[in-house]
Nucleic acid binder design. Structure first.
Lengths: 348, 348
DNA sequence: ACAGGTCGTGAGAGCGCTCTCACAGCGGCG
DNA sequence: CGCCGCTGTGAGAGCGCTCTCACGACCTGT
């Protein structure tokens, strides 16, 4: 579909070969050529071979637009990030996710269209765009609060798979999530096992299920161990480094005896590490720290960060797999939860 | 183009409104409606208003495939990363670049298609795909060696803008680059000004111009200062953390008196910092370190990394701008070099 | 031998849009 | 008064593909 400008010397711009050309070369009709190229079975071996050879010789590539027009499929899916450009930019999480999704999408012969919708206006615009039938499905990353975008997309007939359990709890929505609850619990249990007495947490944003669940895991571990949950030891963060630093300072101010902290993300943990250093305390001797995610950065802190690994790329891959199946008309399970695992390094 | 499966209850699947519908509602012909929607000028105010209202009322979204079919434009561009998934995954550089490119592309009403081609086979496949006219242009990120992919794409009539000066030196290629030479020079000059006597460097991959140029800048600064360039003080890296660690150990082994090092990337510098710590030396007192990129990570090391900032997102944005202009048929300048700037923190 | 399949194939419609062309209406000029 | 151009509009072709339908060739079973 590239518009080749007419060269000055006046000869006709070269157009890619069409199915017509391939069919003629193979000595069959367009219909038969089309059948071969789309892998239909009811074609004679002779015809098949002739068409394939002709296609090879002409370097034929089907025109997606023409195909889309009649099949009403775009053969492309949107990777939609509903997050501010700023967080998207600073959080390697999204890259890992994109990687996982891409590999799966590419393997299915689909295009991956990358879209950022950081404002409600942009989300509306995307909805309109999707309504126009430009994508066969949507991979929705980073859903906040009870945003009803996924419901609206589904209503439009656009299958959507979400990263993270939607807060709305709508059972009709298809999502893939890490086992944040178990992760939060395991992290806290590790700190307990390490002998920590006053275990604090820096939460993630509470308008996301990941933030809520990890906090819930922390609470559960404490309760199970027969301890009380002290509100003073819960500081609210937002998954960012700076948020972690601020929250850790607040924690230290509120209770100087805190001797362990579960940070709901690695970036938060890095921020906490900083605050602890600024306060002149040592990790892990004075204060043990555990993060969540296992980003590459986690291995690079001093000391290297103990954390809970979630399989981010696999998350993206699974989402893409489910989406492809849904587009094909299947109705796979709505909820998928992937296991997480504690990675012990030096901070706890 | 979403294939809405026929519901079991048998009623017709809802199709998005077509131009036909909008035109009828506005009481004009398809041609006039099309003119209005594409912003042509030779339409009466009455007709324009009627069409716009009808479009609004029906929530009309033009069918991209149909348009593409006749205009031979796909209105989408490829963001092609010619890098192993592994490096792509671990280097935030690409995310920053993607962000810059996306904002520009979206503003131009184009789709951004994300593609990874980490092997020659995948690159060939992409070439075939592009030859099919599926994209109007290509943003090529991370070109290695004298890969002739950009030339092949241009030959196919697909305008391409490259991130980084191609090693082939082909003057017909359009690229955007950071001023790596000046950056390498400035970094080295800073180390000289700090009083360092034995200044080493850990290079980037020498099959990329960024790696070559930064090394060249290092050499130039040394020569300008009347010093000799000692081959023993040049260790070859690959922009990765581990590469930096290995190279720094080698440097320390070869010459224990080294008192400063210019690492060609922040990740490399982080690796070097690690090796220096393992060797029991202090930064910056024993050994000063300066990196390159100014990734977010640079501000998070201990001590915070002094580095050369390159405007990565702006790089992506500029590339996208140039590509859009080229697609529109303009012939903007082929080479664009963006300035870099030293960011002083604590390691030098 | 013939009706009733199955199988491979081609003709042709049509997806939703853009764009060329023709034409009607109208004002200005010789 | 006839002719020019200029402006707004609509009719209609056709982009490259898929898919339905019809059809001839070839089997099978009675």
């Amino acid at each position: 579909m590239v518009q080749r400008r007419d060269p000055v010397d006046g000869h006709v711009p070269v157009r890619p070969p069409t199915l017509e050309v391939v069919a003629a070369r193979a000595g069959v009709s367009r219909a038969t050529a089309s059948r071969v190229l789309r892998g239909a079975t009811n074609v004679s071996d002779d015809a098949r071979e002739a068409v394939l050879r002709a296609a090879r010789e002409t370097a034929y590539a089907p025109n997606r637009a023409a195909r889309s027009l009649v099949t009403r499929r775009s053969d492309s899916i949107a990777f939609l990030v509903a997050e501010s450009e700023d967080r998207l930019f600073t959080d390697p999480y999204f890259l890992a996710m994109l990687r996982g999704a891409h590999s799966q999408i590419a393997a299915s012969g689909l295009q991956l269209i990358f879209v950022i919708a950081s404002t409600p206006a942009e989300a509306d615009q995307f909805e309109h765009y999707a309504a126009g039938g430009h994508v066969d499905g949507v991979l929705l990353v980073s859903l906040h609060g009870d945003d009803r975008l996924p419901q609206r997309l589904e209503q439009l007939g656009v299958p959507t798979v979400i990263n993270g359990r939607p807060l709305s709890g709508d059972p009709s929505l298809c999502y893939v999530d890490s086992d944040n609850l178990s992760g939060g619990r395991a992290a806290t249990e590790l700190l307990i096992a390490r002998g920590a007495r006053r275990i604090a947490t820096i939460t993630g944003p509470q308008d996301m299920c990941a933030g809520q669940d990890r906090l819930q895991g922390y609470r559960a571990a404490l309760t199970d161990a027969g301890r009380t949950v002290d509100q003073q030891l819960i500081a609210f963060g937002d998954f960012t480094v700076d948020g972690g630093t601020r929250a850790m300072h607040a924690l230290l101010d509120a209770d100087p005896d805190v001797d362990a902290v579960f940070a709901a993300s690695d970036l938060t943990a890095i921020g906490a590490l900083r605050a602890i250093e600024q306060a002149g305390r040592r990790v892990p001797d004075d204060i043990a720290v555990i993060g969540f995610d296992d980003l590459r950065e986690a291995a690079l802190t001093t000391p290297p960060l103990t954390t809970v690994r979630q399989p981010i790329a696999e998350l993206g891959q699974t989402m893409a797999q489910l989406l492809v199946r849904r587009i094909a008309g299947e109705d796979p399970q709505r909820a998928t939860v992937l296991p997480v695992e504690v990675v012990q390094r030096r901070t706890a």
